[in-house]
């Protein structure tokens, strides 16, 4: 059995290494690469057209529905992981329990489907 603290020390170190590698690559590139900015280069690339206004504006909000549904199903997932590990010992009780849970969420999915919220235009 691997030691708990040591395991997560590994995880910690790997995160640090990931960040370090990106930093190192950028630094090397910054040292080696030339930098000759011109006004044309520094303009946002919009297929050669002169950009009109900023990109940070208002966008249609129905894109938000997908993020919303994802959050709900993600929360379902955090219950599924522990359930999958012990469902054999729970037996039929566990099946019914999770069945009711999923069925209630599927009602929401069906509602979204009927409201035509699941199509991306």
């Amino acid at each position: 059995m691997p030691d708990y603290n040591l395991s997560y020390f590994y995880v910690f170190v790997f995160f640090a290494v990931g960040a370090f590698v990106v930093g190192a690559l950028m630094t090397v590139s910054r040292i080696i690469a030339p930098r000759r900015p011109t006004p044309e280069k520094l303009r946002p690339y919009e297929s050669g057209e002169e950009p009109i206004g900023q990109a940070w504006g208002r966008y249609p909000i129905h894109f938000y529905v997908f993020a919303l549904l994802f959050v709900v199903f993600d929360v379902e997932v955090i219950f599924l992981f522990p359930w999958a590990v012990i469902f054999a010992s729970l037996g039929w009780y566990g099946i019914v329990e999770m069945g009711v849970f999923i069925a209630i969420l599927v009602v929401g999915l069906v509602y979204a489907w009927k409201k035509d919220a699941l199509s991306w235009y």
Partner: peptide
């Protein structure tokens, strides 16, 4: 804490929907 996660998710989903609806 697990149930708090559920509540946090529900809260932020509805809260943002209200903000977006008001923003429209």
């Amino acid at each position: 804490v697990i149930f708090t996660f559920v509540i946090a998710a529900a809260e932020v989903a509805v809260g943002l929907a209200i903000v977006l609806a008001a923003y429209r």
